[in-house]
Design a protein around this nucleic acid. Sequence first.
RNA 1: GGGGAGGUUCCCGAGUGGUCAAAGGGGGCAGACUGUAAAUCUGUUGCUUCGGCUUCGAAGGUUCAAAUCCUUCUCUCCCCA
Length: 414
Amino acid sequence: MNKALAVLKERGFFKQCTDEDLLNKKLDEGPVRIYVGVDPTGPSMHVGHMVPLFAMHHLQEAGHLPVILVGGGTARIGDPSGKSDMRKMLTIDQIKENAEKLKVQISNFIKFDGDKAKLVDNADWLAPLNYIEFLRDIGKHFSVNRMLTFESYKKRLEKGLSFIEFNYQLLQSYDFLELYRRENCILQIGGDDQWGNIVAGMELIRRVEGGEAIGLTFPLVTRSDGKKMGKTEKGAIFLDPEMTSVYEFFQYWRNVADADVEKFLLLYTFLPTEECKKLGALEGQEINKAKEILAYELTKIIHGEEEASKALEGAKAAFSAGGAQDKSGMPSGEIAVTELETGVNIMDLYVQSGLCSSKSEARRLVSQNGAAINGEKNSDVDAVIGLDSVVEEDGEKEIVLKAGKKRFFRFIVK
RNA sequence: GGGGAGGUUCCCGAGUGGUCAAAGGGGGCAGACUGUAAAUCUGUUGCUUCGGCUUCGAAGGUUCAAAUCCUUCUCUCCCCA
C-alpha cells in the first residue's frame, strides 16, 4: 500500500474511497494535487473542521500538493449535507472577511511556501457564471431523481429544502471539475458527509472531460460520550483565540474522555503513530499524561508553542495543589485597589470576572458551595472581599477565584 | 392562490382564564465519589437593589386576572392548485 495512504488509514482518516486501487497507484506515481474545500460560513473554523486539514497535512508531508479551496462562492448558498436546518444567509462582505481569517488558520496545518500548496477561492469562477450556460453545460449532467436518493437530501425533504441549497451539489461538483481542469486535481478529500458531493463531482469530470478522478472521505469524528465534537454548552470550540481563549481550548482537550484519547492523538496531533498508540494505552491515573500531551500538542499547532506552554502552566498552577507556578496562562483580569478598599461583594466579584453571567448564577454557585477564593471555599453570599483577601506571589498581588472544580479566574490587583 | 396544523423558558415537550416563572425529560451548573475521566447519587437551573421585575412568535384588545379568550400581523410545516 502507498505510504501516505497507509498513514491516513493508521491514523483513522479513512472512511471510504471511490477507487482505492487507483488511488494507490496515483499516489505511488508521484505528487498528486488534492482538493479539499472549506466554507467561510463563520469567522473562525472550529475543531470540527480540522480533520480534513490534518489529513491534508499528512498528505503534504508525503510529498503531495494540497489545493485548499475556500468556498467564497458556495458559502453564499449553504450546504445542506448533514444539516437539519437551512443555513443563515451571509452577506458577501461577511464571507470575504471570514475567508481572510480562515486563510490564516489554514496555514497552521499546511505549508504554503514555494508552490507546495495552493489556496483558491471558488468565487473566482462561480461568481461570473452565466445561469443559462451553466444549466446547459453542467445542469444537464445531473439527474434530479438520482439526487433525491441521496441521504442528505432525503432527510431534508422531510424538513424542507430550498432550491438554492438543492443546487449546492452542482456547484461543488463544478468546483471539482474546475480544479481538475485548472490544477489537474484528481483527488478530492472531505468528511464523510461530503461523499455524495464528491462522487457527483467525479462523475461530472468523467462526463464532461472523460477524466478519472478519485474521492476519499474521513469518518465523522464523534466523542465516546455521544456529544458533538468540539461543542460545549457555551458553543463551539473555535480556533480563533478571540472567540475561544487558548486556555479554554487547551482545557477542552485536557478533559476529553479516556476512550477518545488515542483517537484524538492520532487525528489531531502530528506525533508519530506509535507514540499516539502508546499514550492512548495508558490506564488509570496515567492517562492524564496522555491528555496533557494531546492538549499541549494540539494547542501548539493552533496557537504556537509559547501560548501552549502558558496554557499548560496555567492549568498546572490551577489544578496542582502546591507550589508557585506560572499562572500567566490562566484567564485573568485587573481589579483596582480602590475597589477592594471599599470591599466587593463576593457575587459581584464573580460576575465581574465573567465566571458567572448573572448575579443569580453567582448566588447559586456560592450557596451551593462551589466558590472558592484563593483556594478557600466560601459559601456566604454576603461575604465582602477586601484587601485582606489579596495574596502576593512573584511580586504580583492577586486574588484567584475558583468556580466549581475546573474554572478559574485571576484578578490582578492594580 | 385555497385549506389545515402549529410557533411555550438552552433543547424536546406538557399546559386551553386565576393555585404558572410555567409539569416531565434532555442538557447545563454545583455537591459527593474520583484521575481536571466515565458511571452513579443529591441539589439546582429567567432576572433582581430580594420590594419586586420581565418571559410562553409580534402588536393590539376583552377581563379584577391571560401562555391560555378575541383581532391583526408574522414565521414554519402539511395537503390541494
